[in-house]
Simulated assay, not measured.
Amino acid sequence: MSSGRTEPTGGLPPATARPATARPEGEYRQLIHVAYRLLGSLAEAEDAVQEAFVRWYALPDRQRAAVEVPGAWLTTVVGRICLDVLGSARARRERYVGAWIPEPLPDTVEWLGGRADDGGTDPAERIALDESLDMAFLVVLEAMTPAERVAFVLHDVFRYPFAELATITGRTPAACRQLASSARRRVRAARTPEPPTGLRARVVKDFKQAWEAQDIAALVGLLTPDATVVVDGGGLVGAALRPITGAGEIARYLVAVGGMAPGTTLRLQSVNGRPGLVARRGGTVVTVAAFALADGRITRIWAVRNPEKLQAWTE
């Protein structure tokens, strides 16, 4: 932040506005939610939020007291930090070994220490927030430009006004509207009908049982013919460096991997708010898998094995 200049205070919609006397620490959970969706990494989200608080407390008392809505100020700063991080992330990911998958999250109760929603969120907004944690949604966000991602997430998910987005992106409100519209088209193009949670859980459970039984035929029956598995090992652990495509190829790969990892246990668990699988060996989480379904069969599996992305899963 430039010396002697205060970040624009702006304002959030009434539902998220806070009085001037509010303790900004109370905004921490909301800021983590924003930063994680912007960055796809809980560790980077925490760093971004911590940096925002450093800037908040670096303000002279007089300037801090003049900020009418601390949450809006902090969200603006977090947005700018995330925009910078996203700009440099592309270069870093070009050097990444193998596929890069967003960091998977356990249930929000576990990773935030309590429910993110206190009952005051509109049901439609609650659904939008839940969907924006889905791994398939986060993968679509990865294909966006940094500015598109910031504009879309802050406006469409968190209802941040375009006038405030302009202060974050350095563009006009009209340009921010266009960015969000472009991102929205990407999301619509990639979206598939959301299967009921019960069906999703049942399919993942059947997949777990078939994998444990090393039943290739059963695994093939649970996958679409063109299903894809993407594995993220980050060059730190063994992982397929390229996506594996085709039900038969995936089934044989899974059986082979299972045979090479004796003592591994599978557990059904929430991954980014959806039924997923967690593999443990010797009490340590070694793989977290998220799933996408269509017509009752698995279309895509994202398996994160990079230990640096599994720290939130450490018991």
Rank of each mutant, 00 (worst) to 15 (best):
L39H: 08
G170S: 04
L59N: 08
L165W: 03
T245Q: 05
Q178H: 03
Y96R: 09
A217K: 06
A20P: 00
V97T: 14
E212M: 08
M260S: 14
A136S: 15
G238H: 06
E131V: 04
A190W: 04
V288K: 02
G282L: 09
R115Y: 09
A294I: 00
E110A: 13
A43R: 08
A45H: 02
L31H: 07
V54H: 06
L83F: 05
A48T: 13
A58H: 10
T16Q: 12
G114R: 12
R185K: 08
M1P: 14
V286G: 07
G120E: 07
D232Q: 02
G248Y: 00
W100M: 02
A213K: 10
L86H: 04
A147Y: 02
G87R: 01
Q63R: 12
G258R: 12
F158E: 06
P275D: 05
C82D: 06
L133T: 01
T16G: 03
D84L: 10
A58R: 14
M135Y: 01
P102N: 07
R191K: 14
F162I: 02
V97H: 05
P173K: 04
G113N: 09
Q269D: 14
C82R: 08
G273N: 04
A210V: 11
R37G: 12
R90Y: 01
W56V: 13
V271Y: 00
A312Q: 03
R37W: 13
E25S: 10
V187H: 02
A312S: 15
L293W: 07
A240E: 11
F207C: 07
V54R: 08
R95A: 13
V85P: 04
F162C: 02
A89D: 14
P106V: 00
W73E: 06
A43F: 03
A99L: 00
A124R: 15
L31W: 02
L42W: 10
L129Y: 06
P106W: 01
G233Q: 06
V220Y: 06
G263Q: 14
E44L: 15
A289R: 05
F162R: 00
T16P: 01
V139K: 11
V220Q: 15
V157P: 00
L293F: 09
V255L: 09
R95D: 11
V139M: 14
L42M: 08
Y36Q: 04
V67A: 03
L154R: 09
D117S: 13
V49K: 00
V220N: 07
N306D: 15
A217E: 11
R177L: 15
I298S: 00
W211K: 02
A22S: 14
Q209G: 06
S270T: 15
V85M: 10
R62D: 12
L105G: 08
V97P: 05
K309F: 13
A217R: 07
K205I: 09
R202K: 04
R95K: 09
W302Q: 05
E103S: 11
T314I: 11
G114Y: 03
D47S: 08
F207D: 02
W73R: 08
Q214I: 04
F291P: 06
R200S: 15
L83I: 06
R280V: 14
V237Q: 12
G170M: 03
D61P: 04
R80N: 04
A65T: 14
L31A: 11
A189R: 15
D122V: 03
A180P: 11
G283T: 09
I216W: 04
R80E: 13
G79I: 04
I81C: 08
R159W: 07
A190Y: 02
G273M: 01
G276P: 07
E194F: 05
R29N: 10
R95Y: 00
